[in-house]
Design a protein around this nucleic acid. Structure first.
Lengths: 166, 166
DNA sequence: TGATAATATTGAGAAAGTCAATGATTTGGC
DNA sequence: GCCAAATCATTGACTTTCTCAATATTATCA
């Protein structure tokens, strides 16, 4: 038996080209998925990540490396486990990331005076300098992705996101 | 020669256990990274995804499958290429996802009357039913992840995110 | 018509994520 | 103080996801 609904009855994609740079996405803007914050955050993260990775490329960094470098520069002296918890990384991923950054001489593993199992991450001088350069680029990336938002709206977005993830 | 800066001078993680369920993250809350929306969206996406995947598990769905099912159910009749663009998926990933969903009989590839290269995605009856069940679960997941936000704040968050990703 | 581009597909390889096992160490109960 | 259980970093295997190039079919357009 044939399905009750006949498909492909509403689409008219190729006729009108949008004036802006966007393609045929207006059609999907009112779909239920486009209202889910899970979808929206996934897309925001995807776009932001891609742009940031692009801007960090000439420093041989990806956002994942930048994130651990940033934490090593933060003065909070995180252990690897704490870092993994904060960045949502498996312990094994942490050692891999720390290995490459330590291999580049930008961070160090230091013994934790309170617990000899644990290792504390700190940035070297070179690490601080690299972080300074990288942070400029990620700020640029953030500015770009938030360009449609006012300063107040950016703070608002930050605050709302912080409320749901902490 | 010893390094100029002595590390591990400020941490006191294990002494006070937080009253809530969170661990030692308060220490990192004022780090620069915690103010970056790239980081916040990544974390939000990670948490949301994990919870949604959990709630969808008994339907043998992940959010990635749910997303294409949702679009197939939306009445917008997306082509595979359009779907990939909207969901930030490589064409090859789209065919893989569509293959499994079509194999389960919940969506169909239909010929695009305007372009015989392209294939349009529509949901079957079984697909609509599966989507109804799945959507309940993702709504539950969203409600859970946004539980600290008022209804107005949720709308605000949705609107701000939509502005930056569309 | 013929050249160029776009669509879905395949396949290969890299990157990222997941998980279990292990040695060293700490913690907590006794 | 001692022993069992838990925790931390690490390794290695494995799965999933991502990325990219090549291809056959079909559209577009000069």
């Amino acid at each position: 038996m044939p399905p009750s609904t006949t498909a492909a009855s509403a689409a008219a994609p190729s006729s009108t080209k949008s004036a802006t740079s966007e393609g045929s996405e207006e059609r999907f803007l009112h779909s239920p998925l486009a209202r889910e914050v899970a979808f929206l955050t996934a897309r925001a993260r995807g776009r932001g990540n891609a742009l940031a990775n692009q801007l960090l490329a000439d420093l041989d960094l990806k956002v994942r490396h930048f994130s651990v470098l940033a934490m090593a520069c933060s003065g909070t002296n995180p252990s690897q486990r704490e870092l993994g918890g904060f960045l949502d990384l498996d312990p094994s991923q942490v050692v891999a990331l720390v290995d490459v950054l330590e291999g580049r001489g930008v961070i160090r593993r230091e013994p934790d005076p309170r617990d000899r199992r644990s290792k504390i991450l700190v940035a070297t001088e070179a690490g601080q300098e690299l972080y300074a350069q990288a942070a400029r680029r990620t700020r640029e990336a953030e500015d770009q992705t938030l360009k449609k938002l006012s300063s107040a709206e950016r703070d608002q977005l930050r605050e709302l996101l912080a409320r749901i993830v902490f």
